[in-house]
């Protein structure tokens, strides 16, 4: 059991939680994730990337969007409550080193796991530019933290309600043209990662993406998370979650993410009924 120490709602659907987990806090590195399970025998296991850790408090921070049954349940917990099962840190850490100029691209909730990488890249002596995007202003998170850490921050929204009205690929392409980075890190929705990786490809820029596929155990045992990387099958949980964005078979990954689409749509509806949350409110 891992106790929730603090909770904060960042936007309509997005929550930040600080959770007591001293061993994970100590062992984790940027880029790694945890798997959590709650709701007794019938609860599912879901992966979430670690957004931050506090060694003194022995805690980790998770930032999540209430989209499925488990994240909805999680969102209903309050400080003092506990998460039944929390496993981590899983996966390989980000390959943080001095590249020179680094551009970190975050979309939506992906900005959260990007933050420790921005910190790490900065600490390693890189010049770091952050491009962060969201559908609309209300869904934008962690801008302040990013501004306090990165050398430059470019904010875009799909609807132009804040920052530039553009997709993240637009400023990314401009940077590739004008001030070519040595490394690009992209975390966000799969479609965004696909197009951002395609943007950097013609420039031959080393591009890291963090994949969030369907997982069960997270230890390499089930293979449900497998993806095709440069024609080879890899497991996101143990070989990843980060891969060379130019080698990922995005279309196959997107198809695999939709494996349970119909079952999940039904479950989402069910959990809104079961947890008494109105449709549209997370």
């Amino acid at each position: 059991m891992n106790k929730i120490l603090a909770k904060q709602q960042l936007s309509k659907e997005v929550f930040r939680m600080e959770i007591e987990a001293p061993e994970i806090a100590e062992a984790r590195n940027p880029g790694q994730f945890i798997i959590l399970q709650m709701g007794g025998d019938f609860g599912e296991r879901i992966p979430l990337t670690i957004a931050n850790a506090d060694l003194e408090k022995g805690s980790i921070t998770l930032i999540f969007q209430a989209v499925g049954e488990t994240t909805h349940r999680l969102a209903l917990l309050e400080p003092g409550d506990a998460i039944d099962n929390l496993l981590g840190p899983l996966g390989k850490p980000t390959d943080i080193k001095k590249y020179g100029k680094v551009v970190c691209v975050g979309g939506g909730i992906g900005v959260a796991p990007l933050f420790p990488i921005v910190e790490g890249m900065k600490k390693a002596g890189n010049e770091v530019t952050v491009i962060m995007g969201a559908r609309t202003k209300d869904l934008l998170i962690m801008e302040e933290e990013m501004r306090a850490t990165a050398d430059d921050v470019i904010v875009v929204t799909d609807d132009g309600s804040y920052g530039r009205k553009a997709l993240v690929t637009v400023p990314l392409k401009e940077l590739c043209e004008e001030d070519k980075p040595d490394c690009v890190v992209i975390i966000g929705p799969p479609v965004m990662m696909k197009f951002a990786a395609l943007t950097t490809k013609p420039y031959g820029i080393h591009t890291i993406v963090s994949l969030n596929t369907i997982m069960i155990d997270g230890t390499g045992m089930c293979g449900g998370c497998r993806v095709t990387i440069g024609g080879e099958t890899k497991f996101v949980c143990v070989d990843g979650p980060e891969f060379d964005g130019h080698l990922v078979d995005w279309d196959n990954m997107l198809l695999r993410l939709g494996t349970y689409k119909s079952e999940e749509a039904e479950a989402h509806h069910r959990c809104h009924i079961g947890l008494h949350i109105k449709e549209g409110e997370a």
Binding site: I216, M221, G223, G224
Partner: peptide, 22 residues
């Protein structure tokens, strides 16, 4: 022995292909 073997054939990552473990 927790690392499932796959066949290494074409189409193995299509939707609807599972390791017995999964």
């Amino acid at each position: 022995a927790g690392l499932p073997r796959f066949l290494g054939i074409e189409g193995e990552n299509y939707v609807g292909v599972f390791s017995a473990n999964e």
